[in-house]
């Protein structure tokens, strides 16, 4: 467990408040209503999958919840902070402290090694060099990629790249993790391993997870599943 092996950077909240709360969220593209009346709460350690057909607006909803894309109506708060009230600098600070993101195409920096890619997320939060070294080494071991520490992304397999991306996303122990099709670019074995790790690590650091996927198999790793159909967010049984 991370908390047993490494001193936590931030203490967990004792009161179970949602790490992500969206109320009456609405978004249109021109005349086309993409979604409306979206309400969702995600609590610490809760893992939520967001399903839906292609073009339903899953990624756009994820972007709105993450504060990357503006929404037309409603509100979103992360860690109790309403995104509408944040300026650009505060938004950046929120992203580097409270949010972790995992992409379909990994988006590792091609000119940084695996170690440095993970370390960058910690460097952004102002963690000292010694603490960064300790934390990154721990994560590399935890994700079983310690032997690829000095490898550049172009020298790694897809599975390895995604594990580095996961490590980067959780290195600073965010409150909420957003994952957009995290297995979309992986073979089934690597995908399965990535999801297992992601699930375990979210539990370990106490973060909530919102995963956009079109795969039922991937969604099965999450305790709650939602579908975006005809602009409405529905909780699946």
């Amino acid at each position: 467990m991370i908390h047993e092996m490494h001193k936590p950077i931030r203490k967990a909240d004792s009161k179970p408040l949602p790490v992500l709360r969206a109320c009456s969220l609405e978004k249109s593209f021109g005349e086309r209503l993409l979604f409306s009346s979206v309400d969702i709460d995600i609590f610490p350690k809760q893992q939520v999958a967001l399903l839906g057909p292609s073009g339903a607006g899953k990624s756009t909803l994820l972007n709105c919840l993450e504060g990357v894309e503006p929404y037309d109506a409603g509100s979103v708060s992360i860690g109790g902070k309403a995104l509408e009230s944040l300026d650009e600098n505060e938004m950046s600070a929120l992203r580097r402290n409270e949010i972790g993101t995992i992409f379909q195409f990994f988006h590792l920096l091609p000119t940084l090694t695996a170690f440095e890619n993970i370390e960058l997320a910690l460097q952004l939060t102002g963690v000292s060099a010694e603490q960064r070294q300790e934390r990154v080494e721990f994560l590399l071991n935890r994700l079983q990629i310690e032997h690829r520490s000095e490898a550049f992304p172009s020298q790694m397999s897809g599975g390895e790249m995604q594990r580095v991306a996961i490590a980067r996303a959780i290195a600073h122990e965010p409150k909420i993790l957003f994952a957009d099709e995290p297995t979309g670019n992986l073979d089934s074995k690597s995908g399965q391993m990535a999801l297992e790790l992601l699930s375990e690590l979210c539990q370990e650091i106490g973060a909530g997870l919102l995963m956009v996927t079109h795969s039922q198999e991937a969604a099965s790793y999450c305790e709650s599943q939602y579908s975006l159909v005809d602009g409405q967010l529905q909780r699946d049984a």
Binding site: V68, A93, L94, R95, G100, F103, F105
Partner: peptide, 16 residues
């Protein structure tokens, strides 16, 4: 662009 977008998503400010 993709790389820059990813950096912003992991919290790099415009200044950085």
């Amino acid at each position: 662009r993709g790389e820059v977008g990813a950096l912003r998503r992991i919290g790099m400010s415009r200044k950085s």
